[in-house]
Design a protein around this nucleic acid. Structure first.
Lengths: 204, 204
DNA sequence: ATTTCAGAATACAGACTGTATTTCGTAAGT
DNA sequence: ACTTACGAAATACAGTCTGTATTCTGAAAT
């Protein structure tokens, strides 16, 4: 039998909708009990979907969490953060960039913590989503450090490489989480503290 | 039948020895493949011990990892670190303390990373060992901040609380790991960078 | 009317945890 | 010498996961 052409608009829409429902269920599940392990079965029940549907939509557990990570990259405010970091004044860009990432971290705290930990504990369980985020941040911070240097803000004894390393550390999710979850600071205070540490460590 | 008194010296020794062998096997396993999940079965085979022996010795998977955490607290150089931090000059103590924790982190990197991540992802899977370490560090850093303040090293616009928060973050395993594993710095460079950030952020 | 596809339902293999239960060997007590 | 206690191995089993395969249904597209 010959294959037919199919447009399937409504079909694809509904498929996309259940994908969304599943991803939302994972988030919901993580927020409800961030310190408990997540089973596909739980997620399926919360999304009111059969477990097999999750495998059909995402291929595997790793695929599900990988998709979750990719989703955060799209919709988590990563773009607006990069925009804030591109301020003509590099020092302002530094502050804005830090406020931006912190805001994004705060909005997705439990999800990011889970993805981060999973990536550490079982590299196959996340499928590169976390590496991609870290890599993006690394090159962003390298650019930031270069701009600080070009505009003469960097201290004489601080190389661009060193500045990149420190910024990479200070803008990590872990740094944010240690201050907010670990020390109970509100996100705004954490951002202020991180920006302060970055400026005093790197700038004249 | 009446119960007899038993001294069992050699017995207890051999039991302690197998406990050690099991704990060493976990470490070895984690170092061999830090990003792969750890099964009790693997550990048992590496320690050349029956799987049931592990349950008898540690009660559960959580008990095993909890014991591993406690073991690190004992033998991981925590004491010498606290000693270095107690230098009469608070500023010297700060530097020494940071070098101390970094050395300890570097010596047990993979094990600590795994314990950390497990604690995040499944609180029941570690059994409080990580919380205890963090708590100890928190009070240590609070003391450190107080001493800096008492000796007049703290900047006018930095409170003791703020200093504690920042020190807690900078002396975390995550900060170390981001610089060493994430950025490829040698441990000594990481320690230097962390100490620099702490001093410039907090001190006059 | 017929094809195509999302999704449900179900069954199964395989890995892992955790709990008995039995057995064996040996150090400690009498 | 004989008995007891106990560390450790061996084994079996229940329960929870993941991942795969198979079948069925209903609705949208042609």
């Amino acid at each position: 039998m010959t294959t037919r052409k199919y447009e399937q608009r409504l079909r694809a829409e509904s498929a996309e909708e259940t994908r969304r429902r599943i991803l939302d269920a994972v988030c919901q599940r993580l927020r409800a009990a961030p310190a408990d392990p997540v089973s596909i079965d739980q997620v399926a029940r919360m999304a009111r979907v059969s477990r097999s549907t999750i495998y059909q939509a995402f291929g595997s557990r790793a695929g599900l969490f990988s998709a979750l990570g990719a989703d955060l990259l799209d919709r988590g405010g990563f773009g607006s953060m990069l925009q804030a970091a591109a301020h003509p004044d590099a020092r302002e860009g530094l502050r804005g960039g830090i406020r931006g990432v912190v805001g994004m971290y705060a909005a997705n705290r439990d999800v990011l913590r889970a993805l981060n930990s999973m990536a550490q504990l079982d590299a196959a369980a996340v499928g590169g989503a976390v590496q991609k985020m870290d890599q993006g941040r690394a090159s962003g911070m390298a650019a930031q450090a270069r701009r600080l240097d070009e505009q003469g803000f960097l201290r004489a004894d601080v190389t661009v490489d060193t500045a990149t390393d420190l910024l990479f550390m200070l803008t990590s999710f872990d740094s944010f989480d240690l201050l907010c979850t670990g020390r109970g600071l509100p996100a705004s205070k954490a951002a202020e503290l991180l920006a302060m540490a970055a400026e005093r460590s790197l700038c004249r």
